[in-house]
Structures are given as C-alpha cells and as structure tokens.
Design a protein around this nucleic acid. Sequence first.
DNA 1: ATGATTTCCTGTAGGC
DNA 2: TGCCTACAGGAAATCA
Length: 271
Amino acid sequence: MPELPEVETVCRALRRLAMGADVTRIAHLREDYAAAGYELLPRFRPGAIGDVERRGKFFALHLSSGFTLLLHLGMSGRLLMMPSGDPGDGHTHARLELGGGRGSLHLRDPRRFGLFALFENGGLAEYPSWRNLGIDPFAMKPSMLAAMLEGRRKPVKNFLLDQRFIAGLGNIYADESLHRAKIHPGREAGSLGPAEIKRLCRGIREVLNAAIESGGTSTSDYRKLDGTLGSFQNVLRVYKRHGLPCPRCGTEVARTVFSARGTHFCPKCQV
DNA sequence: ATGATTTCCTGTAGGC
DNA sequence: TGCCTACAGGAAATCA
C-alpha cells in the first residue's frame, strides 16, 4: 500500500514529467470519489503545475490558476501517466489531461480508499486531514519523538500509524522501522527509553530512505508512475515474512494484530 | 482526552 | 476445479 516512499517515488517522477505542464481538463469519472471540492469542478480553470508537494502520503498539485489538487492513494490507488485519449478502465476515477502532448494522469483505485479533492485559493490549508498532519519523519529529532511518546499508553505500533504524530508511515514501514530499532510493536509508547527512541528515529529514517532508493514496495497494488514495480518488497526484513527467518538472528518471524493491522516482528530480537 | 473498535470497498487467497 | 468466505488496510467516525 502506498506509504511515504511510494508517494515520494511517484512525486519525483511527476515533477520530472508534469511540472510546468498545463492541466487542461479534469475528467471526474466517479463523483462520489471526492471528499472535498466537488462543487468547485464546474468552475475549474486550467493552469500550469507549478509545484508538486508531498506531505505524509498526500500529493498536492498547485496550479497557476489558483486551484490545488489533493490526491491520496489509499491502499489500492495508483497514479499513472497514460497517453492522451486512453479512457482508463472501470476503476479509473479521475483523469487529468495535460497540455503539450504530455499525456494524461489517471487516478485508478479499485478499493476506493483514496482521495481526489479540489481546493481554491489556499483552501487546502483548512482541510482537516492535511492541517492535522504530524511531523515529517526526515525532520524528526529524537527529542521531538520523545515529546510525542511521553505519557502515551497505546502500543508503539499504533502510535506509528497515527498520521497526526508522524506523517507518512503505514503498516509496512512501521513494522520495518520497529524491527530495525529492535523494539517490540506491542510496547507501550510512553515506555521507550532514550536509546530506543534514538534507534527508532534512525530506523524510520533509514528504512524510508532505502525504500525511496528502491522505488517503493510493490507487494500488491502499488505501481510507479509509469506502471512498473518498485523493488523494496525484495528486501523487507519482517513485513509479510511470518514463518521465515529473521535476517538478523534467524528466529521465525511472528505475526499478530495491533490496531486491526497485521503486525510482523521478530520475537527474539525485538524486545 | 485518549484509545479501541467499526466502517468503507473489492480483488485475492485460502479452505472445502 | 469451482465456489464461497475471510482477509487485506488508510483514515474517518463512532464507541467506551
């Protein structure tokens, strides 16, 4: 499922291929696939893509005409660069036509947990799930993580999934980060000591960087902008590897459930 | 206020 | 082989 590294991968490709291009037309093929801004569509005015911003797992495309397009891939969403004129399929919920023969951006999302929303004149800043996003994991210092963990009783796995604290981690990278930091996912968040907090901070940063280098994790639906697969699924250490040996100590990776999410960890080296 | 649970949705894996 | 059920999960809503 697309998390920070997947969104960042697509974002970088988008900057390369679409920045400066005009979004000439929005084909909104499924009107219930928008949590905000549907009423603005009739007023939409074409504009050049000036900046492609990523915060957490969101993309924001800022257009010169004053509109901002906000996208989230949910769990089965793909953003694909397609040739102009390609209609997409039954799961293609929106198409952004680009000027200058640059093609068309398709938002395809079978399970429809994603988001396509339109804002005008900075209205995005008021959008709750954007406004309430937590800190960027790359800018997170151990002291900042410590302050957020302080007094929290919930399992650290649940904490890592909450976008209001740290923006961009999902199930895959939460599990992988905890394994790198040698912390058991069920540990009470507020119980982590300074050394553990430091390891977690570093583990998060390192796994996200490595995954971006690999173009993201294609375990199921995720694809890059050009439709090809990322490769980080080949080097995962615990996620979906239950029953296989921990790459660090050889113990069988275990699986349990936290926060209604499958959680994978090494029962020996994560304490 | 905090944390836990439920809901949305559909393709796919697993069981019989 | 084919059918059916259960499961996967991001984030908002709801519940305790």
